[in-house]
Computed example of a mutant assay.
Amino acid sequence: MSLPVAAGAKAAAAAPADVVDDALATVEKAVAGLLAAVTSGDAAGVVPQVTATLTSLVNLAVATVLGSGLPAPDLAGLPALPALPVAVPELPVDPPELPVDPPELPVDAPVKPPVDLPDLPVKPPLPVR
């Protein structure tokens, strides 16, 4: 014997898979946008695409967890997320200036050689026959 099922219950049972599919499509779209921004050479367009890609990945993880029937986590005790930097530096950035004056070198060699060094090259003795 089967129990009667309301018309909206079948749609609700399919809804978690739809949420995960929608989140996966958003990730694919965000990754394609990130790839386009990185290959375009426009540094100002990369940061928003990275943010969109990470947000879509988090949304996919949440949709997967919530769509699996696990209880929703209680995130009330977590601190607020820090904001991303608003200003993006112009690229390429000039390297810092190098010191103008070279450092002082030591006057004496750190290790002095022994006094009685043979003259180089030293010839080996001839073989005796």
Rank of each mutant, 00 (worst) to 15 (best):
L57T: 11
E104T: 04
P125F: 00
P96W: 01
P113L: 10
A15F: 05
P89R: 02
V93P: 06
P102A: 10
D101W: 10
A13F: 10
D21L: 13
D119Y: 01
V31T: 12
A43Q: 07
A25V: 01
G45S: 13
V58C: 07
V122H: 06
A14C: 14
L120I: 06
P118V: 06
A12Y: 04
V111C: 03
E104H: 05
P73Q: 04
A6N: 08
L105N: 03
A14R: 11
V27F: 00
P114R: 07
V107K: 15
P110D: 11
P110S: 03
E90G: 12
T39C: 01
E28L: 12
V122Y: 08
V111Y: 13
A83S: 15
A9E: 11
A43C: 05
P113V: 06
V27L: 02
T53E: 10
L70A: 13
V107Y: 08
D42Y: 04
P118L: 13
P95T: 09
A13L: 12
P102Q: 07
V50F: 02
G33N: 14
P121N: 06
A11C: 03
A52F: 04
P48A: 08
V111T: 09
K112D: 15
D116R: 13
A87G: 03
E28P: 07
T39H: 01
A9P: 00
V86D: 11
A25I: 04
A14Q: 15
D119L: 07
K10G: 10
T55E: 13
D18P: 01
P79N: 06
V27T: 02
S40T: 03
A37D: 09
